[in-house]
Write a protein that binds this DNA or RNA. Structure first.
Lengths: 113, 113
DNA sequence: ATCATTTTCAACCATATGGTTGAGTATATA
DNA sequence: TATATACTCAACCATATGGTTGAAAATGAT
């Protein structure tokens, strides 16, 4: 299920409007109309984006009267960040290993096969 | 341009096959056919995925004879990780602020209005 | 009760996406 | 030279995506 979540999270983050919505939400909660105001797309489009973000777990919508208050839920970013960090740490390790090899001496610089 | 890169990187990471390719590549470089072997899609499909990953800067393809050697380039993950960490650190700060408020005393626990 | 506001939903459209197959190109091998 | 291998490219297909507009539903205000 983490797999599926990662799909949804990364896919949600792949759209600039949705990232902008999250940026805005980082400044505090907001209603759908407050959120949609600065964007050059229709109200309904923003509502759809919020649906995508909500399904990815990145945003929660809570009814308050006739409004929906949206909040960011950065906990959903954890899996994505873990994934990225795993790959980056792998890279760091490899670079360090390479540097160690290079420093150890130019005798066996190539062990790629 | 970072914007555009983020679009491409997050979009590329949104597909499970592409993440699996990166996972595989984390184990070391591989040719396109080596990469495509374990996947239940056609050779051409994997080649396309590699194109997406390459355009996102996540993978490099280098010709070696008739083969293409693919390598992961985790440096491209930097922007994505920065973006995620910004939003998470924001969140952490807010949580800490909330915790501080709660500890400070139950007199003004609700300032959400 | 009526009207306005906020939001979602449904239908629709153009384009993007991920997949296929088949042809084409370049390199290795017989 | 002929043939097999590794790969990309082009054309095509089904579905997903992001956008629109126009109801519809629920709540607030008069």
């Amino acid at each position: 299920m983490v797999e599926n979540d990662l799909n949804r999270v990364f896919h949600a983050l792949g759209d600039p409007t949705r990232r902008a919505i999250l940026d805005r939400l980082a400044g505090g909660e907001a209603t759908v109309s407050q959120l949609s105001r600065p964007f050059p797309v229709s109200f309904a489009a923003v509502s759809k984006h919020l649906g995508v973000l909500e399904r990815a777990g990145l945003v929660t919508r809570e009814a308050r009267g006739r409004e929906r208050v949206c909040r960011i839920n950065p906990a959903a970013l954890n899996d994505a960040r873990s994934w990225l960090e795993f790959h980056q740490s792998f890279w760091t390790e490899r670079l360090e290993a390479l540097a160690a090899l290079v420093e150890a001496g130019p005798d066996s610089p190539d062990e790629s096969r």
